[in-house]
Amino acid sequence: MSNLPDADTLVAVLVATLRPIVTPETGMIGIVTGGAWLAERLHQELGLKVPLGRLDISFYRDDFSSSGLHASVKPSQVPFSVDDREILLVDDVLYTGRTTRAALNEIFDYGRPKSVRLVVMADRDERQLPIAAQYVGAVIKVPAGKKLQLERDAAGKLSLRLNSPKTANA
């Protein structure tokens, strides 16, 4: 899909947007899997001091009773105190907002942050919940039945892909 924006360009856009607002105390948390990859890049390029956190929101999904537990749940790790901290929550694609809601619930189980702002590489602009991203790489309209995903190759290069999922996944 050559008409999708280049992921590296979007990373550069986000880095430039975020640079003025990050502080030595800013905490960053990426949502597994794509969001964690993006967060790794942003964390490194912004030179953030607080270690990077990652969330696997499988235990917080609202479709647990219908879709069950996936075989490869990775433990969440938030290696800093979230209490009273400004948090940047990072995901690859913002779609319905359900993943974001689950991630917010999980963050609050670690403590009470001062603020949480959402950073996404791509916004599909099809929200089912009152959730918005403050920092967006690009708004990308996706045809029905398709899934927009961030992928990472063996060399660590990020790219956006449009896939036809076997099972729809928010």
């Binding site: 696997d56 499988s58 235990f59 749940v73 433990p75 969440s76 609050f108 189980d109 670690y110």
Partner: peptide, 23 residues
């Protein structure tokens, strides 16, 4: 193995402020 792997991801919950997940 699925049970043991899932248990691994529950271990860290005991170290958090709120030792609960809403499953």
């Amino acid at each position: 193995t699925h049970i043991l792997d899932t248990a691994t991801s529950f271990i860290s919950i005991a170290e958090r402020d709120v030792k609960k997940v809403p499953l």
